[in-house]
C-alpha cells in the first residue's frame, strides 16, 4: 500500500463530500476548518483518524470529515470512543461533542473517560444551549438564562467544563474560541500530540438560539482585556496594552496592573501547564469575567500512563508468563479427567 505513506495533506483532503448542514454563521464551520487544518499539519495518515460523536449540532461533525466516522447516540460518544481506542490503539480517536451531549446526558461517561485517561482528543463545543432541539438551557447555561424551558430564568448553577475535567483527574485541558483559527489549530495539534484524554473546550456561538453568548468576553473590542492566552513557561500577561497580569495573592489568583504598586513582570505567575498539582490549573480554568480574564490556550497538560497503553502492557506481561497460549490450552486447564 504505497499510498499509505502519502502524508502531505492540505485541509481540503479532510473534507468529505457531504453537504455541511449547520446554519450559516454558526461557529461550527470555523471549528471544522481549524480541525481540518490541524490534521493536515499533523501529517498522520488519514486512515488512522476515527471521529466519534454523540447527538447534537456538533455531533454532525464526523459526516463532514473525510476520515472514519461513527455518529453515535446521545451522550454516549465518550463510551464509544473509549471502545474504539482500547480495541484499536493505533487509531487517533477524536470525540466531537457539545455541552448537552457531554455534560448532561453523557456526564457519567465524560468523567470516566477522563478518569481512565484514554488517549483520545475530546473537543467540546460549548454554546451554552441545546441547538438541535431548538433552544433549551444546558448544563453550562449561566444561572438565570431565559430559554424555552426556563421562561422565568434558570435557578440552577452551571458547570464549568475545566473544573469538571480537573475534578475528574483530567490531565489535559485547553480552551479556545471558534473564530480563532490560529489559536485553535495550535491547541488541536497539541491535544493530538498529548498522550491521554485531551479535553478542548471551544467557546462556540450558536447564531440561532444563543447568539452572542460569549460576546461579553470575545467581542473584538474587549477580547484582549477579558481573556488571557496562557503559554507554558511564559508570564501571565494580558490586555490590549499588555499591561495586566496575574499573580498569586495568598491562596487566590489576583489581577494586577503592571507598574501599579511597584508590580513588574517578574512578579507575575509563570504558566506551568506541566505541574502535576492541579491547584493553580483549577483556579485558572475557573477564572470568570468580570473578576478575571477567561483563560484560553493550554491550561493543563500533565502526561501519565494512558489506559490503552497500560492494557497493552498488561496483556503483554501476562502473555509472557502464560501457561495458556490458545483456546485448546484453556479448555484443558484446571481439573479434567479421561473417560
Amino acid at each position: 500500500m504505497a499510498e499509505a505513506t502519502k502524508i502531505q495533506y492540505t485541509a481540503k483532503d479532510f473534507k468529505s463530500d457531504q453537504e455541511v448542514r449547520w446554519c450559516p454563521g454558526c461557529g461550527d464551520h470555523a471549528i471544522l476548518a481549524s480541525i481540518q487544518k490541524a490534521l493536515a499539519e499533523l501529517g498522520i495518515p488519514k486512515e488512522k483518524y476515527a471521529f466519534v460523536s454523540g447527538i447534537g449540532c456538533s455531533s454532525r461533525f464526523p459526516y463532514y470529515m473525510n476520515a472514519y466516522g461513527f455518529h453515535g447516540i446521545h451522550g454516549r460518544a465518550s463510551a464509544i470512543a473509549s471502545g474504539v481506542k482500547v480495541a484499536n490503539p493505533d487509531l487517533m480517536v477524536w470525540q466531537i461533542t457539545g455541552d448537552g451531549d457531554a455534560l448532561a446526558i453523557g456526564g457519567n461517561h465524560f468523567i470516566h473517560i477522563i478518569r481512565r485517561n484514554i488517549d483520545i482528543n475530546l473537543v467540546l463545543f460549548n454554546n451554552e444551549i441545546y441547538g438541535l432541539t431548538k433552544g433549551q438551557y444546558s448544563p453550562t447555561s449561566h444561572k438565570g438564562i431565559v430559554t424555552k424551558t426556563s421562561p422565568y430564568g434558570t435557578i440552577e448553577e452551571p458547570f464549568k467544563v475545566g473544573e469538571l475535567v480537573i475534578g475528574a483527574n483530567g490531565r489535559f485541558f485547553a480552551r479556545t474560541a471558534d473564530y480563532n483559527l490560529t489559536l485553535s489549530t495550535d491547541v488541536y495539534k497539541q491535544a493530538a500530540n498529548f498522550r491521554g484524554t485531551s479535553v478542548v473546550e471551544v467557546l462556540q456561538n450558536c447564531v440561532i438560539f444563543n447568539d452572542g453568548i460569549h460576546d461579553s468576553i470575545l467581542d473584538k473590542e474587549v477580547r484582549d482585556d477579558r481573556t488571557i492566552v496562557l503559554r507554558h513557561g511564559e508570564p501571565m500577561i494580558f490586555g490590549k496594552e499588555r499591561d495586566k497580569g496575574i499573580i498569586l495573592d495568598g491562596l487566590k489568583l489576583k489581577v494586577v496592573k503592571l507598574g501599579e504598586n511597584g508590580v513588574t513582570e517578574k512578579d507575575l505567575l509563570i504558566h506551568d501547564a506541566h505541574e502535576p498539582n492541579p491547584g493553580i490549573h483549577y483556579m485558572l480554568a475557573g477564572m470568570k469575567y468580570p473578576d478575571y480574564p477567561v483563560a484560553m490556550g493550554i491550561i493543563r497538560a500533565v502526561e501519565s500512563q494512558t489506559y490503552d497503553s497500560a492494557l497493552v502492557e498488561q496483556i503483554a506481561k501476562v502473555k509472557e508468563k502464560a501457561q495458556i497460549k490458545c483456546v485448546d490450552d484453556l479448555l484443558h486447564s484446571g481439573s479434567t479427567w479421561e473417560v
Binding site: A50, R76, A79, I80, A81, V86, A87
Partner: peptide, 17 residues
C-alpha cells in the same frame, strides 16, 4: 464500564474498530 450503557457503547466502539 461505568454503567450498562457504557458497557454496550464501548462494545460498539470496539466492533466499529
Amino acid at each position: 464500564a461505568e454503567d450498562e450503557i457504557a458497557g454496550i457503547c464501548t462494545t460498539l466502539g470496539a466492533s466499529f474498530a
